[in-house]
Design a binder for these strands. Structure first.
Lengths: 248, 248
DNA sequence: CGGGGAGTTGAATGCAGTCAACAAATGTGG
DNA sequence: CCACATTTGTTGACTGCATTCAACTCCCCG
């Protein structure tokens, strides 16, 4: 973990602002809102960002890298709740029970923008728009959670895997000017833990998808030559998924 | 659908306030906040409250009865996202894309307290606490969504069914002074749609649970003689689940 | 060069789905 | 109030997808 409080990059021209917390705010409000941001924090791959049960003091926007949010189950398994990519907002918590219900680990090396949670109260009272920006973010989170639920409940494993790969690809590619392939730091086991499958079966699905030419996946990188075709396997409409994964 | 705008019950001594939106507010703030509530709405069993794609103008707190929130899938299936019980907050939406991502149907006859969404903005600017009350609600929603995800991903169907029955029982029982049995308006097919199982298999699990004496379920009513025992099958800690299902 | 994590393959088991038919409960109209 | 229709619940036989267990390969990193 490495903290940086000086020479923070400007929010105004931040590449990920459109999809992040401040993307919901008009530029003229940025001055006041930016007062929230106190620092940037970096973690190396494999490091915990926080643990289930922690009481957080800072919320984060992912600035660079991928993060896994997950719960450890009593049988030793873990359930991955989602993968957080640049622009995602983590760890905000104001309810009565302030304990976090999940843990987070850096999948790749990550950098986060940190916001002291207790400062949100003051800023919101003079800038109610921030409250709506927060609501908007959590609405997206819930929506994604809903589609995740829907996906995991759907029976054929091929559908689940296709859905997950496609949605990660769309999100990461949009941050990178839509390259052919994206860096793909997660393992087949991560995917299994996210979808409630065994790594072995995920592997078999991967091979089947490769054989069909739907995915190119090796060396920690992922390519999807024909997104529409994969969307068909994922049983989802591509435009809908793109809308969900981008802006809001 | 039946609208009522006169003689609305007082929020102060509302039985469900503790678990509802205003439960997050201190009593001294209630005066201003209550200005939000405009009406009560009633629906009969089977009626739609709203449809996926609608742009809502009102948010609701469930006052009486059960509601199903669900998505229709392209293969004709539907995925139930959650069952909303008295105290639950529905249909609040402020993000850029204001379309609802799911539909809602009254399972039993229901009564809702309605709040015009556009009035939240004004009230929040003079009562920032309301913004935190909203955040707190959505945090609970996300937490429940997370445990739902975790449950549905878990493999044995018995675990899933046990979890769902137990959590519904705990919530409804706490509203009713913990009776032996609760009214249980949902069908086995609903449960199947919530858990991603077939109704046939849900039925088999029901019979197995009945044979083990873990559930008493007939005539639209549910009893759970030994919650701890069912919690064991659900592979969840009973105190944890109770905490999640009650206050927050 | 060795070790460990990630990925791959095969065989056997079993949980849950499918299809089909029927029983029970609930609701509706005559 | 009964007869009929519809929905909900129940049972059985068969199939198949995904798990489990075990062994082995590949690749990266130290």
């Amino acid at each position: 973990m490495k903290l940086n409080t000086v020479n923070l990059p400007k929010c105004e021209n931040c590449a990920i602002r459109a999809t992040a917390l401040f993307g919901e705010l008009e530029t003229r409000h940025l001055d006041r809102a930016r007062a929230l941001r106190s620092s940037q924090v970096s973690y190396t791959a494999g490091e915990y960002l926080y643990y289930e049960g922690d009481i957080p003091t800072k919320a984060f926007t992912v600035y660079k890298g991928w993060v896994t949010l997950f719960k450890n189950l009593r049988n030793g398994d873990r359930q991955i709740l989602r993968f957080a990519l640049p622009g995602d907002f983590l760890c905000y918590k104001v309810g009565k029970n302030k304990q976090l219900d999940h843990s987070a680990i850096a999948v790749s090396d990550v950098t986060l923008c940190a916001f002291p949670i207790d400062r949100f109260r003051e800023v919101i009272s003079e800038l109610p728009e921030l409250a709506f920006a927060l609501s908007s973010i959590t609405e997206t989170t819930i929506k994604r959670c809903h589609t995740a639920l829907t996906t995991i409940a759907s029976h054929p494993a091929e559908t689940k895997v296709a859905y997950l790969l496609l949605s990660l690809f769309i999100r990461e590619a949009s941050l990178l000017n839509n390259p052919e392939r994206i860096p793909f730091p997660i393992t087949q086991e991560d995917i299994a833990d996210a979808l409630g499958l065994t790594p072995i079966h995920v592997n078999r699905v991967f091979q089947s998808l490769r054989k069909q030419g739907l995915i190119l996946c090796k060396n920690r990188s992922l390519g999807i030559p024909d997104k529409a075709a994969l969307a068909k396997v994922a049983k989802i409409s591509l435009p809908e998924l793109e809308q969900l994964m981008m802006g809001i």
